[in-house]
């Protein structure tokens, strides 16, 4: 009962995320919505597995949790840097000749 309530809550939250992904003024909003949607999908899958008594669904939840991150990074990197190939830096680039 409570689990179904939790699943319903997650579904509503996911719908709101879809709304943000469609509206989202900037692409970062859309990426954020997609990422958050993915996290909620993971949780929803876990809950569904329990509600239907099929804990094997957790394997799929696990893979979502991993894939979702890679997709988010790819989208972020694509939109920020227009490249999939260049490495992300760790240092602050020197500017204007100081330092």
């Amino acid at each position: 009962m409570l689990l179904i309530g939790a699943a319903a809550g997650l579904l509503v939250a996911m719908s709101l995320m879809i709304a943000r992904a469609i509206m989202g003024p900037s692409h970062y909003d859309r990426i954020l919505a997609a990422n958050s949607f993915g996290t909620k999908t993971v949780l929803l899958l876990a809950i569904i597995g329990f509600v239907f008594g099929r804990p094997a669904f957790l394997d799929i939840a696990l893979v979502y949790a991993l894939i979702n991150f890679v997709t988010t990074i790819a989208l972020m990197k694509f939109f920020r840097y227009r490249s999939l190939a260049a490495p992300l830096t760790t240092h602050t680039p020197k500017e204007g000749g100081n330092g």
């Binding site: 920020r80 840097y81 260049a86 992300l88 830096t89 760790t90 602050t92």
Partner: peptide, 18 residues
């Protein structure tokens, strides 16, 4: 090909560790 960096905030330490 240089490492891409647009501004001073472009350091992705957290991302690299994760």
């Amino acid at each position: 090909i240089e490492p891409l960096a647009g501004g001073p905030a472009d350091h992705h330490v957290v991302l690299r560790v994760a």
